[in-house]
Design a protein around this nucleic acid. Structure first.
Lengths: 348, 348
DNA sequence: GATCTCATGTAAATCGTTTTTTTAACTTGC
DNA sequence: GCAAGTTAAAAAAACGATTTACATGAGATC
């Protein structure tokens, strides 16, 4: 390995000067161009690459941010991660990826490992979160800029980026209603999931505004489960029960895309064609939604933008810390978007 | 931050002794238990955490491996990443995740960044690879243990883990044939993709063994494209052309699941019910395959195991390097598995 | 002519570990 | 009584950068 001293020797200057030139430090303005050129040429010639450990040890910077996902296999993650990666790349930061598997012990272990690596910022992707929220509160102590995606923790130290669930729930029902559907089945989210209640609130808002009645017999909740795949199975089972109980409905509003996929499976099994006999809507717009047949009408979360936004907040935070400014937590709520595909159509 | 010197002061011993005790270094065997206890208690009390930069600088180890993905949005990645993460976790390594977006410049930049971080190993997920293979050959120089997933580079320095495409292609066709299908349409992979030709070879092997005729009019290739989503669109378009040309077939063997989804969309659009009128098979078993309706019969790549296997090889390599043993590249070819779901059924 | 500022550079301290080398006392075995 | 280990601990030398403080001469200012 070639060190800064090798470059110093090769160029004929001291390692101090080499460091100053190569980093374009403030003092570099006193250094004549010819000197700079000579040093740069020497570094080039030797293929010098600064040792990041030494650099970090001295400067206390790692140029690294931690990314903590609660369940990588949730298809929701993919695009968010892409957004995170892309924005970090442009800022020359690298992400350390950890997957908590929704387990407390893993969360704690990974958090320690990340702090040991002196990550400068942290992004937590907590969309499908079934852990004690206190776990996250612990993060507040760490004093490194942190942004939560998909779950909000009111408070002054941790930022968050979430989708406007209420607007999304409203839009989903509005879509079905304006297609003429009046008998609608609902599969709500698990009670302990933060997204569930605002989505339902949006739905209720829409029923009130439009004077739509909801049949309580047509409303069920997904069970609590750490496994995001469970919402597929539960969606299927719950829909099947609706059918077996001979409930009448022309549309089904599912908590998320996974649930919708499960519902469609159940409907198909019992000969209810989608969308002819029953329209179905989802929420999220995961990759599969555009791929399956019929493609799913759903409420899209702007996942890539959310990832990018989270990184933006964290980078701002890092800069604030560097310049010893105060950092105030930001709470962004981004608008979802109705994506009309073929799983919904006019009633009747 | 509390340093080793603080622990030394607190415990009343020198920092040398503290280091030896806390790392359980060879010399620790000369240190009496009471001393150890006292030092450990002091460390505990102060909440001492060694500075990883200093440690790495001295020991030249980073406990980090690089993960380079060619396109994160390819749903193929998810489970492989899970396998990688999980295995690294058990070995107390952390992954730095990079996404090359199938772009040469990004590849080069990221590679430099990773080498600067002194990653101890590298895993390249190159399943959908449209870059000059020479790019990968450059890696050989870096002398850090590297494993390719999804693409093989014969040679002595880089390991690989790939699926046995030939066996997979064979199994897919064998399945359709044994269901009685004789008129089968084929959508092959892009010519420049490494997987394409062995899969086709497996198919040809099966036709020969079973005396099945292939109608060349029913064989088409996916176009070259960097975007994995393109195989959905191409699958749709090519299938539509088959139909418009009034070709007769009772089954369609698609290059991968994405292609199969596209094909199903086209078939559905023209009123060909799957599987009643036409059976369809895919390859990979991405998450969506089990979720869509009808669920897709496909050839599963054991993605999680492949990720785990790649990490295993890399860790072996790291240990070999540490002990100055010679490292020989390993080339593992893992068996795929036929997963029968509802997109295929008996002909006729 | 004394004092300042600027321009150009270097020596030395520092970051927080790990590792090698020393020191020194205490056992053995002969 | 002494060479050869063993036990216990510390001093000092890395690791490879960055940064602070200092040195020197030249020109400007008062």
């Amino acid at each position: 390995m070639v060190t800064i001293r090798d470059v110093a020797k090769e160029s004929g200057f001291s390692s101090t000067t080499v460091s100053i030139v190569l980093n374009d430090a403030p003092l570099a303005r006193y250094i004549p161009v010819v000197t700079k050129k000579r040093i740069e040429r020497a570094a080039e010639k030797l293929g010098y690459r600064p040792n990041q450990f030494a650099r970090s040890l001295r400067s206390k910077r790692s140029h690294t941010v931690g990314v903590m996902v609660f369940d990588m296999t949730d298809p929701y993650c993919t695009l968010v991660l892409r957004g995170i990666e892309n924005t970090l790349y442009q800022a020359s930061y690298l992400p350390i990826l950890t997957d908590v598997h929704n387990e407390r012990s893993r969360f704690e272990r990974y958090l320690e490992m990340l702090l040991d690596r002196r990550i400068e910022g942290l992004i937590v992707l907590a969309n499908w979160l079934f852990l004690d929220i206190n776990l996250l509160a612990d993060l507040e102590k760490s004093s490194i800029p942190t942004t939560l995606i998909g779950c909000e923790l009111k408070g002054d130290s941790m930022s968050s980026v979430i989708v406007d669930n209420e607007v999304g729930g409203y839009a989903a029902l509005e879509h079905l209603h304006s297609l003429g559907h009046r008998k609608i089945a609902f599969i709500r989210g698990p009670k302990t999931l933060a997204d569930s209640s605002p989505r339902w609130r949006g739905i209720r808002k829409c029923t009130k505004e439009r004077g739509l009645d909801i049949d309580n017999q047509l409303v069920v909740d997904l069970p609590d489960s750490r496994d995001p795949l469970s919402s597929f199975e539960a969606g299927q089972k719950l829909t099947e029960e609706f059918i077996k109980q001979k409930r009448e409905f022309t549309a089904l509003l599912a908590f998320d895309d996974m649930t919708a996929f499960g519902a469609i499976r159940a409907l198909d099994k019992h000969g209810w064609r989608v969308p002819e006999r029953c329209s179905v809507t989802g929420f999220d717009d995961v990759a599969a939604s555009a791929l399956c047949t019929p493609p799913l009408t759903t409420i899209r979360q702007p996942m890539e933008a959310m990832g990018a936004g989270a990184v933006g907040i964290v980078l701002e935070g890092i800069n604030s810390v560097l310049e010893k400014r105060e950092v105030a937590a930001q709470h962004r709520k981004v608008a979802p978007q109705l994506v009309v595909r073929d799983s919904t159509r006019k009633a009747g």
